[in-house]
């Protein structure tokens, strides 16, 4: 489903280049649950953002379901992203002036879905995540774990094929983190491909494959 060939990313500092990703070759099949691990500064999040098309400044080949992403312009990438991906952030990145329901609805407003349809989808998602009773609360009224659940619900609301998660339990207690990982497991079992960046070996056990990265290189 996702194929990266010889992908590289660097920053130019005067005459020198600082490589963040070096000759990355990665293949991820549909339905996999993959963990990307490595020490701090290894390039984990960078790899995730490249896969999620949030970082456009790289070289190499990237195929998504056979389509050459590396040849697409920004608009085309944005379209293909919307069809395929959802993103979960370490810091949740919820909007404080929107309710839980409104936060979850946000991705749908960018996908030309009519209001009554959006309301129906949001209601389903709230139900699925057992958050109906909290739909009118604001993020600062929720615990960290609950906020991250909202983040995941928001990532899932548009039914993406792939969920990208950047340290999803980084700001949570162990028990809250377990709850999140259980949720990811369930989603994966239902058919969603999950790619997560994590430091936690415990979290990595939920996945069925680990990609190790060090100093921008994929460890074979």
């Amino acid at each position: 489903m996702i194929e990266l060939r010889n992908v590289e990313k660097f920053y130019q500092h005067g005459p020198t280049k600082s490589y963040v990703l070096r000759r990355v070759d990665v293949t991820i099949k549909e339905g996999e649950f993959v963990s990307i691990m490595g020490p701090s500064g290894a390039g984990k999040s960078t790899l995730l953002y490249v896969i999620g098309m949030h970082d456009g400044d790289w070289t190499g080949d990237y195929f998504l379901s056979g389509q050459p992403v590396h040849k697409m312009n920004r608009k085309e990438r944005n379209e293909i992203y919307k069809q395929n991906f959802g993103f979960v952030f370490q810091s949740y990145h919820l909007l404080d002036n929107l309710t839980v329901a409104e936060n979850i609805e946000m991705p749908l407003t960018y996908r030309n879905i009519k209001k009554h349809e959006r309301e129906a989808i949001v209601a389903d998602t709230l139900d699925r995540f057992q958050m109906v009773g909290k739909k009118d609360l604001f993020p600062n009224q929720l615990s960290g774990g609950q906020q991250q659940l909202v983040g995941i619900a928001r990532a899932m609301v548009a039914s993406p094929k792939v969920i990208l998660a950047d340290e999803p339990t980084g700001n949570l207690h162990t028990s809250q983190g377990k709850e999140i990982m259980e949720m990811f497991k369930k989603l994966n079992e239902a058919g969603t491909t999950i790619i997560q960046v994590t430091h936690s070996d415990l979290n990595a056990t939920y996945s069925n494959r680990i990609i190790e990265i060090r100093d921008g290189w994929i460890e074979k």
Binding site: H54, P107, Y110
Partner: peptide, 14 residues
């Protein structure tokens, strides 16, 4: 916030 909205699928016009 802008980055997050784009990650949610927002277009430049949004």
């Amino acid at each position: 916030e802008i980055g997050m909205r784009v990650a949610m699928g927002a277009q430049p016009s949004d």
